[in-house]
Simulated assay, not measured.
Amino acid sequence: MFRYRGHQIRWWEAGAGEPLLLIHGFPSGSWDWHYLWDALAKRYRVIALDMIGFAFSEKPRGYPYDLIDQADLQQALMAHLQIADYHVLAHDYGDSVAQELLARHEGGAGFLRSMCFLNGGLFPETHHPVLLQKLLMSPIGSLIGRLYNRERMARTFGNIFGPQTQPDEHELDAFWRMIEFNQGPRIMYLLIRYMADRRVHRDRWVAAMQATRLPLRVIDGAVDPVSGAHMVERYRQLIPDPDTVLLPHIGHYPQVEAPELVLEHYLAFREQRVDQPAETTTPA
């Protein structure tokens, strides 16, 4: 645990070597990375936290949740650990936090080594929210959160996972444990404000992605209805020399649905684009 703005934040660390920060998505937490954790920790110093309002960190009712603050939180942990620069692997909501970190890096702070995105709303114009997200954003959002339960969660997750890689009961139990801990559903209507934040910061974040010399890769589950192949198509239109990997038949949670493939393509990214000396790095 460490304290951030007076609140307890849960975080994990394993391994040694270059620091790799894992940033989870909505509405879950760092458990999302558990299938990759040991393999990554054999190669890197792996760090992950449950963002404020998520999983096993505190979930204050009156907190002004936004993506800028969540990026501040990530940097606060890295400062706490005295880590000056690091790599990032992010998913979903975490992609937006990572985009904010990238914009800060491009603004002159210069603390990132590489960035890899899994399925997420990198561009608001290609993000297709599920019904739950739309309802949480509505005037009855607080009521929807209070009525949210494991059955509704299972239906939503079933719709965004690939048809051949549906979550099993153990995985659904784990997702629900993160969400329901400390009455999490009661603040989901506050967390969902991130969709509006994305629109506010969209141009600045995309400009940073277009300008950066930092190695970037997208590894994306193609059949995700929220941010699947259609998001990657937009990425290829907007980002110079795009480095993208589409995973056929995989949905919104590739690190849970196909962890071996995510690991394979992430390690290839590190070997080919990041970890080689600059003069021998393979072009994207």
Results as ranks from 00 to 15, higher is better:
174 A>F: 01
71 A>W: 03
35 Y>S: 05
146 R>T: 11
221 G>L: 03
143 L>K: 12
62 G>L: 08
19 P>E: 07
198 R>G: 01
101 L>G: 05
81 L>S: 06
77 L>R: 11
165 T>R: 15
249 H>A: 15
46 V>F: 05
241 D>S: 14
59 K>D: 08
145 G>D: 12
150 R>I: 02
233 E>D: 15
168 D>V: 03
220 D>I: 01
109 A>L: 12
46 V>L: 06
53 G>H: 05
89 L>N: 07
112 L>I: 06
134 K>L: 15
271 E>S: 12
143 L>W: 14
130 V>E: 10
160 I>T: 11
39 A>T: 01
258 A>W: 02
161 F>E: 03
233 E>T: 12
6 G>Q: 09
163 P>D: 08
78 M>G: 06
275 D>S: 14
241 D>M: 11
269 F>P: 01
67 L>A: 10
276 Q>G: 13
265 H>K: 06
221 G>N: 04
269 F>W: 04
78 M>Y: 07
212 T>N: 09
267 L>M: 14
254 P>I: 10
126 T>S: 15
249 H>T: 14
41 A>H: 02
80 H>F: 09
246 L>I: 08
278 A>D: 14
181 F>T: 06
96 S>I: 07
209 M>W: 13
5 R>L: 13
129 P>A: 11
272 Q>V: 00
75 Q>L: 15
257 E>A: 10
252 H>C: 08
33 W>Q: 05
35 Y>I: 00
271 E>L: 08
133 Q>E: 15
152 R>D: 01
5 R>H: 11
95 D>S: 15
226 V>T: 09
237 Q>Y: 04
13 E>D: 10
218 V>I: 11
256 V>H: 06
243 D>A: 13
12 W>A: 13
54 F>Q: 01
27 P>A: 12
92 D>S: 12
16 A>F: 05
237 Q>D: 14
75 Q>H: 09
118 L>D: 01
263 L>E: 11
208 A>R: 05
42 K>H: 08
132 L>G: 03
203 D>R: 13
182 N>Q: 15
192 I>P: 00
108 G>N: 07
41 A>Y: 00
268 A>C: 08
201 H>W: 10
95 D>A: 13
74 Q>E: 14
6 G>P: 06
83 I>E: 11
268 A>T: 12
176 W>A: 05
104 R>V: 02
177 R>E: 15
240 P>W: 10
267 L>V: 12
184 G>E: 06
20 L>K: 04
98 A>L: 07
176 W>P: 02
33 W>S: 03
139 P>V: 09
147 L>A: 12
154 A>Q: 09
64 P>L: 10
208 A>W: 02
32 D>Q: 13
113 R>S: 07
232 V>P: 03
173 D>I: 00
188 M>C: 09
207 A>Y: 02
152 R>H: 11
191 L>G: 02
167 P>I: 08
177 R>H: 12
143 L>E: 12
101 L>E: 07
181 F>D: 11
115 M>Y: 02
